[in-house]
Design a protein around this nucleic acid. Structure first.
Length: 420
RNA sequence: GCGGAUGUAGCUCAGUGGUUAGAACGCCUGACUGUGGCUCAGGAGGUCGUGGGUUCAAUUCCCAUCAUCCGCCCCA
């Protein structure tokens, strides 16, 4: 019986982990340049945290949660998304007193039980941003700007943010009614399941991939026409702000988002490189969530960025993420040089360089092969002659050139070389 | 959760109802008695996803199961 990673999960192998680090570092640095601080929350939460917030209609609550009962008979759930736990923490610790504004970022695993395929996993990872306490459009614009810059910095520069507005509750319910009226005749010949779903979440019809559904929706007046004057003004302002910030965007009235808590601004970044999964990130404004969780009404905006999906897009674009190279591989050319080799490697590390040496007392040739494969810039060779003379051979592995330097000058020699 | 495809060495893939299952790449060793990358030679590595069944005989046929991929659904 051979073990394998559970279905829908994956190992990040040593050859791949630098790609993850690159994304994590880029995101963390960027977020902190905008003044966001990191929030770390537990991997699991009381199940109620999600039942109350994601909306009873959403599939993630009804059938995709990893829920279990612990030995104390508590119902717990591996978090399927990051916003609700973040808000739970904000409320629990009063992180955002009335009138203040809180900016946070996080990098978390999320868990959803669904059938895995490319870009969809049972354990996935998400970078998130949340701005708590501001109802200003500038907050919406800021979150979108950071998101867009993240993709740019990571090397994906051809992505436009698709934005839409869902308005406030009143206009949304009028729009939902309009959708149902529009597709009423179409729905009559549909299965009970389709009908039920349509009534439960009419907005969901908009991003349906079913051609017949899309056909039935033809001629529907887009939601933007239903917006109240303030919502409309806000959406226009948002576009102006994004334009001012040189953030490429596209108004896309099919963006509806899957979670129930969104209001006003919603957005996604889409990619055609992900097969059936088109969205790399999704976010928007959720002004009612905190109140629904029992806090005082607090306007918020946030975004979740799919790490695996971002990686897939990078890969599809053929973007290579450079890996840290080893500086020096220290080679022993004589059995009695081994202790010295270890000492030299240690000195190099103390001087801030990366250094490795052979572990198995293999041949000189083998050690140089290892040096070559390690990607090291230099091999440092120490044999009988060198021991006697108190020197080492410094071999530039890319150029094949070799020079001799005194032992005492090793650290300073490489300090200078390492700079270029 | 539904439909379809796939599963043979570390990787990418050939192949066959029947004595020891192959290739390229990768890996190790050597040619090169103190020197990597190229070349050449040799070597290691596979219970042919797992479990059943059919058969004198199965990696090959059948069933189940697990996993991956594609579409639906859902979304990151």
């Amino acid at each position: 019986m051979r073990f394998q990673a559970p279905r829908g999960t994956q190992d990040v192998l040593p050859t791949q982990s630098h790609r993850w680090r690159f994304l994590e570092d880029t995101f963390a640095t960027l977020a902190s340049r905008y003044g966001y601080k990191e929030l770390r929350t537990p991997t699991f939460e009381d199940t109620d945290v999600f039942l109350r917030t994601a909306g009873e209609t959403s599939d993630i609550v009804t059938k995709e949660m990893y829920t279990f009962t612990d030995k104390g008979d508590r119902s717990l759930t591996l978090k399927p998304e990051g916003t609700a736990p973040a808000m739970r923490s904000v409320l629990e610790h009063s992180l955002c007193p009335q009138g203040s504004i809180l900016r946070m970022w996080y990098a978390i695993p999320i868990f959803r039980y669904g059938r895995p395929q490319k870009g969809r996993y049972r354990e996935a990872h998400q970078f998130g941003l949340e701005v708590v306490g501001s109802g200003a459009v500038t907050a919406d614009a800021e979150v979108i700007e950071v998101t867009s810059r993240f993709f740019q910095e990571v090397g994906i520069d051809d992505c436009a943010v698709h934005i839409n507005s869902l308005g406030r509750a009143e206009c949304r319910s009028r729009f939902q009614e309009a959708i149902l009226n529009h597709v009423a005749t179409f729905l009559t010949d549909q299965t009970e399941e389709v009908k039920a779903k349509a009534h439960k979440n009419p907005l969901g019809l908009l991003d349906s991939k079913d051609p017949a559904t899309q056909e039935a929706l033809k001629g529907l007046v887009p939601i933007l026409q239903y917006l109240e004057p303030e919502s409309k003004a806000r959406f226009e302002q948002l576009q102006q702000l994004l334009t001012d910030a040189s953030v490429p965007f596209k108004v896309d009235t099919d963006i509806v988002r899957g979670l129930d808590y969104y209001t006003e601004t919603v957005f996604e970044v889409l990619s055609n490189k992900l097969g059936a999964q088109s969205s790399v990130c999704g976010g928007g404004r959720y002004d009612n969530l905190v109140k629904e969780m029992g806090g005082s009404p607090t306007p918020c905006v946030g975004v979740g960025i799919g790490v695996e999906r971002t990686l897939l897009v990078l890969e599809a674009a053929g973007l290579e993420i450079p890996e840290d190279r080893l500086d020096v591989f220290v080679v022993s050319a004589a059995p009695d040089a081994e202790a010295e080799v270890l000492a030299i490697a240690r000195d190099l590390r103390s001087a801030g360089l990366s250094a490795m040496s052979d572990l198995d007392a293999r041949s000189l040739k083998s050690q140089l092969r290892q040096a070559d494969k390690s990607g090291a810039r230099f091999a440092l060779i120490l044999g009988t002659d060198e021991l006697e003379k108190g020197v080492v051979q410094v071999r530039d592995l890319a150029q094949g050139t070799q020079t001799e330097i005194p032992r005492s000058e090793i650290a300073s020699h490489f300090k200078d070389r390492a700079k270029d």
